[in-house]
């Protein structure tokens, strides 16, 4: 055997718990060159921007500064208003909380297809019959004064009746 001794009694089994968070630090993230502009537009004008790569014939939503497929720089002229409506590309009902606790009322998360992008968000104001792939939905924005320049400036997406 490779190891001559092992901890063989429970009383010997010991683990080291530092008593504080192992990484007692945090991170601050910028929205980035693209995100700064994307969220400014959401915050100030309730508009969702995409950026179009003519070469790949693809419109990214959320907008970015480069096309990941061909590396073309997506300049100001490539940024377009893609509207606030899309369709459900996929959805799920989440029966656990972030920390794995079960919960009665599931959160409904959707991937909303807008142009060639998939905006990941919550679904609200819906009935069971609305839970279907390809159903049209639209963004419901928070009141302007509550917006901070983040994805939650959109409260949720809701079915278009």
């Amino acid at each position: 055997m490779a190891i001559m001794e092992r901890n063989s009694r429970n009383i010997d089994n010991r683990y080291w718990n530092p008593g504080f968070k192992a990484f007692p630090v945090k991170n601050v993230y910028t929205a980035g060159a693209a995100g700064q502009r994307f969220f400014e537009e959401i915050k100030n004008n309730s508009k969702i921007l995409g950026s179009r790569c003519e070469k790949c014939e693809l419109t990214y939503v959320p907008a970015r500064i480069y096309c990941e497929r061909c590396f073309n720089r997506l300049e100001e002229k490539n940024w377009i208003d893609v509207g606030t409506e899309g369709t459900i590309y996929s959805y799920t009902l989440l029966f656990q909380t972030q920390n794995g606790e079960p919960r009665e009322n599931p959160a409904v998360m959707v991937a909303v297809r807008i142009a060639d992008g998939l905006l990941i968000h919550r679904l609200g104001e819906f009935s069971a019959a609305d839970l279907e792939i390809d159903k049209p939905v639209k963004a419901k924005f928070k009141p302007k004064e509550k917006r901070k320049g983040c994805i939650e400036d959109i409260d949720y997406f809701k079915p278009i009746k």
Partner: peptide, 14 residues
């Protein structure tokens, strides 16, 4: 930097 890690990588790679 304003850029995200992805965007910094893009600038250098491009």
């Amino acid at each position: 930097a304003l850029e995200t890690p992805k965007e910094l990588s893009y600038e250098a790679a491009k």
